[in-house]
């Protein structure tokens, strides 16, 4: 991989190379988190999303005009391999539910929740915590609206970590910068958990 990771923090590259992180949802949170994890040197990602790229996604999701109509998992995989051709990707273009969560994501050291709907977030947290009581899940919660970067925080409740302001709802609209901030908080938390050995 040459010099791709020479500017990483000491000890980070080796820890991330051997880990596997799953991302449930490849939209605003998931696509941006995946890019940061690939740049950081995560060796293996499990990606799941049943949807295709639409023009309205491009205000906040890591896709391009040429991706419109493609499965998000496949388009995102191309972008991640363009960053690191050696990254291992396990893609699932299916709808995630309580019955398939453990099977699809079970091999991961850590799960990033990146869904839109609160109901889906609740389902995923429940399915993950019930199946894997020791593995972390890093969720996005409250990322809508404008500005207020100082309101974004990381909150831990046992094995569940929440990134966001914990108050804003999607009805406030979604801004590229704020969504990416929270996505990168999730990626940052995941990297720290892996490197510090809390997720393996």
């Amino acid at each position: 991989m040459g010099d791709l990771f020479t500017r990483n923090v000491d000890g980070m590259t080796a820890a991330l190379r051997g880990c596997r992180i799953a991302i449930a949802g490849c939209g605003g949170l998931g696509s941006n988190a995946a890019v940061s994890l690939a740049r950081a040197g995560v060796g293996s990602l499990i990606l799941a999303d049943f949807d295709v790229v639409e023009i309205s996604n491009l205000n906040r999701q890591h896709f391009f005009q040429k991706d419109i109509g493609r499965l998000k998992t496949e388009a995102l995989a191309d972008h991640l391999r363009a960053i690191n051709p050696e990254i291992k990707l396990d893609m699932h273009s299916v709808k995630i539910d309580a019955a398939n969560t453990a099977r699809i994501f079970g091999a991961a050291d850590l799960l990033i929740e990146a869904f839109d709907r609160a109901e889906a977030k609740m389902m995923l947290i429940g399915a993950w915590c019930t199946s894997f009581a020791e593995k972390p899940i890093v969720c996005g919660n409250g990322l809508s609206g404008l500005g207020q970067s100082d309101q974004l925080k990381l909150l831990q409740a046992g094995q569940v970590y929440f990134c966001g302001d914990g108050t804003s709802d999607m009805s406030a609209g979604l801004c590229s910068a704020r969504v990416a901030l929270v996505a990168n908080m999730q990626a940052n938390a995941a990297i720290e958990l892996i490197v510090r050995g809390s997720a393996t």
């Binding site: 949802g25 939209g27 605003g28 949170l29 998931g30 990146a114 869904f115 839109d116 709907r117 609160a118 977030k121 609740m122 947290i125 969720c139 996005g140 919660n141 409250g142 990322l143 809508s144 909150l155 409740a157 046992g158 569940v160 929440f162 966001g164 914990g166 108050t167 804003s168 709802d169 999607m170 009805s171 979604l174 969504v179």
Partner: peptide
């Protein structure tokens, strides 16, 4: 006890 209100958005 922690009771976290989950919001739409992602």
């Amino acid at each position: 006890v922690q009771a976290i209100h989950i919001f739409h958005g992602g």
